[in-house]
Design a protein around this nucleic acid. Structure first.
Length: 619
RNA sequence: GCCGACGUAGCUCAAUCGGCAGAGCACCCGCCUUGUAAGCGGGCGGUUACGAGUUCGAUUCUCGUCGUCGGCUCCA
C-alpha cells in the first residue's frame, strides 16, 4: 500500500487511484505507533540529558523523528543506549493519557521548555501549527502523558506503550535540523527512528534500504564507469566518462527526434554573457544567490549562465514577429552553471554544472493551453518509453509572503496564470497536487517529482509559465489587428538535465539499461584463442551495423569473461566456440542469464538493430 | 552554508596501546586452451586527502584546509 504523505499547505486536486484507495496516514495504526515511539524516545533522551530542550517529534514516512536542543554534542554512539531504554519503557506498559487544557495551564507545565512555549503562543495567538504554518481555525491545546513524560501534542497515540513492538523499532541516525525549518533559526539535533507493527516489517524495511544502496547511482555510476568527480575539477562538476558520453548522446538524439516532430527549432547560445542581460531578465535580483560570481573583462562584468532563457528571448527578439509565426519553440541542450551550496550537492542528482533539455515556447494567451498540454503529452511519451511509473505532478505556486522577494511582484498575474495552469491540467485530466511557495520567480510551474534510490525527492522534469520576463525583454508580436502584444513564455525541460536524468535512470534501471541506452550493447566472448579471429570479425560486423560491440580477447577463461560482462550489465553476450565459428552462428546469452543457441549472425544483427531502432525496453 | 560522521593502492577494505602500511579485485607479464557468473603463477601499484602541531617516533593524538556521506536549508 502506498500511503500519501501530503506536506502542509498542499491542496490535492486529484489523487491517482492508488492513493485514493489508501487511508490517510494520520488515521493509520502505524502513525500512532510512530508518533508514540517519538514520545518514548524523547522520554529516554531526557532521562540521559535532563537539560535538553525538546521541540517537535512527528511521524514521517517510514518512521519518526524528534528534534532537541542539547547542551553537549550527542552522537551516533549514544543512540544505542537511548534505544535500549526505549525498549524498557515500552515493556513497562504505560498508558497514554490525553488532556485538554488552557494556554495558561500549558505554559505552567512547559515553563522551562522555551520551544514548547513558542508553540503554545503559536497555537493561541497566531493560529500557527508546529511547523509554523498558519492554521485556519484555532485548535484546542492538548497534552499527552505517559509514565514520567508529558508532551504538548494533538495526538493521536496508542493507548498503551505495550501496543508498540519493542523489536520493531530502531533508531536510525542523527542529524542537524533548523528550528521550524528556517535556516535563520538555531540548529537543533534531530534523531531519526523507524517503527513498524511487526519485527518482520522492520527487517524488510532494513533489507529494502540495503537493496536501495546497491542501486544508488553514485555507486553504480562508478562501477559502470559512467561518471566521476575529481577533487581538482571541483565539487558538483561531473566528468562524463565514455560510457556516460554514450548515454547522454542517446538522450540528446531522442530529444531532438521528438522535438523535431513537435515543431521545435534547435538553437545554440554562449555560456557567458554580460551582466546587463541578467539584470534585464531579473536573474540578478531574484536568482543571484545561485549564480557563480562574475568575472570582469575591460571593466564589464560577465556571468556564466544559470539558465538559457534570456538568450532565447534575444533570439525571439532578433526580428519583428507576427502572430502567424507563433508558437515559436526554441530548443537547446544548454549547459548551465549554478552555485549550489556545498551541502546540497548530491552525486549527479544535484550538481553545479548541468546540461538542460531546455526549450522556450513563445505563444499567445489563446495558444497557451494547447502548448502547455502539448508539453505534458511529451512528458508522458518519455515516461512511457522509460517505464517511469512512480512520479507525482506538482503545481508549484507562489506565496504571498514571497512577492517582491522570491517572486515577481504582481499578484494579479500570479493568480491569473496559476489559474490557467490549473484549468489546463484539469481539462487534460492529469492528476496533480498543489503546493505553495515552490514556483519559479517568474511564474507557476508543473514539476514532476521523483524519488532517488535512497528515497530523496527531486524535481525531474519541469514545465513553467513565464508571465514576467517576456515583458522585461520587451518581447512583442504583431497580432491580427495590427497591434502589439507580449507573448507568454513556457519554459520546459521534460528530460530534466543530463545529470539528473542519467542519475535517475541509473537507479531506475539499476544500471541495466535498455539496449538503445546501454553503453556497450554486445560483448563477444570466444571460448578459446582459436575463435579470436571469428570474435574479431563479429565485432567488426556488429559495429558496421551500428551496434556498440566489443570482443573480449583477453587471456581469461570464458567464465571469467562472462562474469565481467555480467557485472558491466552488457545486455547481449555472444559466446562463440568452434561449432559457432564453423557454422557462422552465435550462442546468445542475455543479461538475465537466459540462453539461445545456434542463432545465425545475420538474425542476431537484425534483432539488435530492431531493439535499438524501437528503443525497446525488453531484450 | 549549517549540525554530525568519515577520508589508507584505480576499486572494496585490514593494520592491537602511538612502533617497519597489508589483502582481494583491477592492471601488466607468463602458463593453461577452456561451453555460459571468478583457472594458476609472477609483477606493478602508497608523501595513509592536504597543511601544521604534540612526540624519540603519527595511518593512529590535536588544530586548520579540502572533499565525501547522513540530514537541515535549497533545487533541474
Amino acid at each position: 500500500m502506498y500511503i500519501a504523505l501530503v506536506p502542509c499547505g498542499t491542496r490535492v486536486f486529484c489523487f491517482s487511484k492508488e492513493i485514493e484507495m489508501s487511508d490517510r496516514y494520520e488515521d493509520s495504526p502505524l502513525y500512532r505507533i510512530r508518533h508514540s515511539a517519538a514520545h518514548i524516545m524523547a522520554q529516554a533522551v531526557l532521562e540521559f540529558y535532563p537539560d535538553a530542550k525538546y521541540t517537535i517529534g512527528p511521524p514521517v514516512e517510514n518512521g519518526f523523528y524528534y528534534d532537541f536542543e542539547f547542551s553537549q554534542p550527542v552522537t551516533q554512539e549514544d543512540l544505542e543506549k537511548i534505544e535500549k531504554r526505549m525498549r524498557q519503557i515500552i515493556a513497562a506498559g504505560h498508558e497514554f493519557r490525553r488532556k485538554a487544557l488552557s494556554a495558561e495551564e500549558a505554559r505552567q507545565i512547559f515553563a522551562d521548555q522555551p520551544y514548547k512555549l513558542e508553540l503554545i503562543d503559536g497555537l493561541e495567538k497566531g493560529g500557527l501549527d508546529e511547523y509554523g504554518n498558519p492554521l485556519t481555525e484555532k485548535p484546542e491545546i492538548s497534552i499527552y502523558q505517559h509514565d514520567t513524560f508529558t508532551d504538548l501534542c494533538r495526538g493521536p497515540h496508542v493507548e498503551n506503550t505495550r501496543q508498540i513492538n519493542p523489536s520493531a523499532i530502531k533508531l536510525m541516525s542523527i542529524a542537524g535540523a533548523y528550528w521550524r525549518g528556517d535556516e535563520n533559526n538555531k540548529m537543533l539535533t534531530r534523531i531519526y527512528g523507524t517503527a513498524w507493527q511487526k519485527p518482520d516489517e522492520l527487517k524488510n524495511y532494513l533489507a529494502m534500504l540495503e537493496e536501495a544502496k546497491k542501486r544508488d547511482h553514485r555507486k553504480l555510476g562508478k562501477e559502470l564507469e559512467i561518471f566521476i568527480f575529481d577533487d581538482e575539477v571541483g565539487p558538483g562538476l561531473p566528468l562524463w566518462l565514455p560510457n556516460g558520453g554514450i548515454i547522454t548522446e542517446q538522450l540528446e538524439r531522442l530529444a531532438k527526434e521528438m522535438e523535431e516532430k513537435a515543431g521545435y527549432s534547435q538553437v545554440r547560445t554562449p555560456h557567458v554573457t554580460k551582466e546587463d542581460l541578467f539584470l534585464r531578465s531579473g536573474h540578478l535580483p531574484y536568482y543571484a544567490e545561485s549564480m557563480y560570481p562574475p568575472m570582469e573583462m575591460d571593466g564589464v562584468k560577465y556571468y556564466v549562465k544559470p539558465m538559457n532563457c534570456p538568450m532565447h528571448h534575444k533570439i525571439f527578439a532578433a526580428r519583428p514577429r507576427s502572430y502567424r509565426e507563433l508558437p515559436i519553440r526554441l530548443a537547446e541542450y544548454g549547459t548551465c552553471y549554478r552555485y549550489e551550496k556545498s551541502g546540497e550537492l548530491f552525486g549527479l542528482m544535484r550538481v553545479r554544472s548541468m546540461q538542460m533539455n531546455d526549450a522556450h515556447i513563445y505563444c499567445s494567451e489563446e495558444q497557451f493551453e494547447s502548448e502547455f498540454m502539448g508539453v505534458i503529452d511529451l512528458y508522458k511519451k518519455y515516461f512511457d518509453l522509460f517505464g517511469i511509473e512512480r512520479f507525482k505532478m506538482r503545481l508549484s505556486l507562489h506565496s504571498k509572503a514571497g512577492l517582491g522577494k522570491k517572486y515577481v511582484d504582481n499578484e494579479r498575474l500570479w493568480v491569473k496564470t496559476e489559474d490557467m495552469v490549473r484549468r489546463a491540467m484539469l481539462n487534460g485530466g492529469v492528476p496533480f497536487v498543489e503546493v505553495e511557495d515552490e514556483a519559479a520567480f517568474y511564474g507557476p510551474k508543473i514539476d514532476v517529482q521523483i524519488w532517488s534510490a535512497i528515497g530523496r525527492e527531486f524535481t525531474l522534469a519541469t514545465n513553467q509559465v513565464d508571465f514576467a520576463v517576456p515583458e522585461r525583454f520587451d518581447l512583442k508580436f504583431v497580432n491580427k489587428e495590427g497591434g502589439e502584444e507580449t507573448p507568454l513564455c513556457i519554459h520546459r525541460a521534460p528530460l530534466s538535465t543530463h545529470e539528473r536524468m542519467v542519475g535517475f535512470l541509473i537507479e531506475h534501471y539499476a544500471g541495466a539499461f535498455p539496449v538503445w541506452l546501454a553503453p556497450e550493447q554486445v560483448r563477444v566472448i570466444p571460448i578459446t584463442d582459436a575463435q579470436s579471429e571469428y570474435a574479431g570479425q563479429l565485432e567488426a560486423q556488429l559495429r558496421e551495423a551500428g551496434v556498440r560491440a566489443r570482443a573480449d580477447l583477453g587471456s581469461e577463461r570464458m567464465n571469467a569473461k562472462i562474469r565481467a560482462a555480467q557485472m558491466f550489465k552488457v545486455p547481449y553476450m555472444l559466446v562463440v566456440g568452434a561449432s559457432e565459428a564453423e557454422a557462422g552462428t552465435v550462442s546468445l546469452r542475455l543479461r538475465d542469464g537466459s540462453q539461445e543457441n545456434n542463432i545465425p549472425v545475420a538474425a542476431f544483427v537484425s534483432r539488435v538493430q530492431e531493439k535499438i531502432r524501437s528503443r525497446a525496453s525488453v531484450l
